[in-house]
Amino acid sequence: MSSKRIKNHHFLPQVLQRQFLNDQGQIWYAEKGSDGFFLPPESRNTKSAFKIKDYYTVLDDGAPSDIVEKKFYGPIDNYLGHLLTDVNAAFDNGDAPTFSGEALHNIRLFLFETIKRSPEFINDYDDTLAGRDFVERMIQDPRGDLDQTEKARLEELLQDHVELKRYGRDIRVQGMIRRSTKVEAALEDFSVRWAVSLTHNSFILSSMIAYRIGNGGANGLVNPNMEIWMPVHPKRALVLLRDPKNEIPLVTREHRDHIREINQFAAAKSQSIASHSRKLIESLTGKSVAD
């Protein structure tokens, strides 16, 4: 007997959300409305935050399948869980985690997949429109392989918005999980550093998960000053950057203003954010929690 299909897909893994829980075992969570402004923050559990129904669902013999959620993102989430355990243990013991060889290679690939899985990575993509474009191109059939029965079926499909969305979603997800040897090669120049807060100032979570920061230039890999920041705890963030001369310290103590700048960047670019701190989430959204 097959297991029940998973429909609620967390694009920001619960294992990462749990690093940001408050004393009540919740997070303060806020989403943007249709006007682009944040709605009032709410207290949420990790199951109800940073998720989209069927976001990674693909078609398997024409039927919806959660194989990508289970077989692709499941192992990635497990990897993150082990990574966070090791990172927290090292910092708790007064050490800063270092990575080289295969471990460093795996972190680079993990961060790339993390960036791609975020809704912000393809925020101008519409599943239904993409599905319609795909079906219309099939109908055009430049090779002349389409018989009249199949053409009629496809033309009828153009009126079925549910099926069009399934086709478009399948195309999107298959593209998201496709490897890029060009990007993987470019990431080989990057090293791991840590940004930490030793004060009451904290990093937030956002739906972008990891942020590409250009430091005055473009945020693409061609910019030698581009950095990738991923908060893994309210008091620390993993930073991937180029440091060919090994001049940047393994751990940088971040001052209040820079942490605020990073948080504001995340809030401006993300559809949803979260924090263990009610005060922090209210200050970033400009909205008060409804009591």
Rank of each mutant, 00 (worst) to 15 (best):
E42D: 03
E69S: 07
L158F: 06
H276K: 13
R5I: 15
E163F: 09
Q140Y: 06
I67R: 12
V58I: 15
F134R: 12
A30T: 05
I122C: 06
I213V: 15
L83W: 08
P41F: 04
K70C: 08
V251M: 09
I209N: 00
F37Q: 13
Q17S: 12
P13D: 03
S272C: 11
D243V: 13
L241R: 15
K47R: 11
G175Y: 06
A30P: 01
F112W: 14
D147S: 04
P234R: 07
Q159M: 07
V173S: 01
G220E: 09
L221N: 03
V289D: 03
N78T: 14
V192S: 01
Y55R: 10
A237Q: 07
H276R: 13
V68N: 02
E156H: 10
S207T: 08
V15F: 02
E247I: 13
F112P: 00
Y125K: 09
A89I: 12
N106D: 13
I122N: 08
K32V: 04
N88K: 14
H233I: 06
E163I: 13
A266F: 05
Q148K: 12
F91C: 07
E155L: 12
M226V: 15
G81V: 13
N201T: 15
K32R: 12
G36Q: 07
P231Q: 07
L84M: 09
L154T: 05
S283K: 11
R256S: 11
R117V: 03
I171G: 00
L16F: 06
R278E: 12
I139H: 04
L12N: 07
R169H: 03
R172A: 04
A130M: 14
Q26K: 15
A237F: 04
I281A: 06
H276M: 12
V135C: 03
Q19W: 02
R169Y: 01
I76K: 08
G214P: 07
V173A: 02
G25L: 08
A274E: 03
N246F: 06
D243G: 08
R166K: 14
K70E: 11
Y167D: 00
D145N: 11
A195W: 15
R212P: 02
L221Y: 06
A267S: 12
Y125R: 08
S288M: 13
Q148H: 06
S277R: 11
N45Q: 08
Y55G: 00
V135T: 02
F112K: 09
E254T: 13
I76Q: 11
K32D: 00
S180A: 07
S180K: 06
I228N: 00
F110T: 01
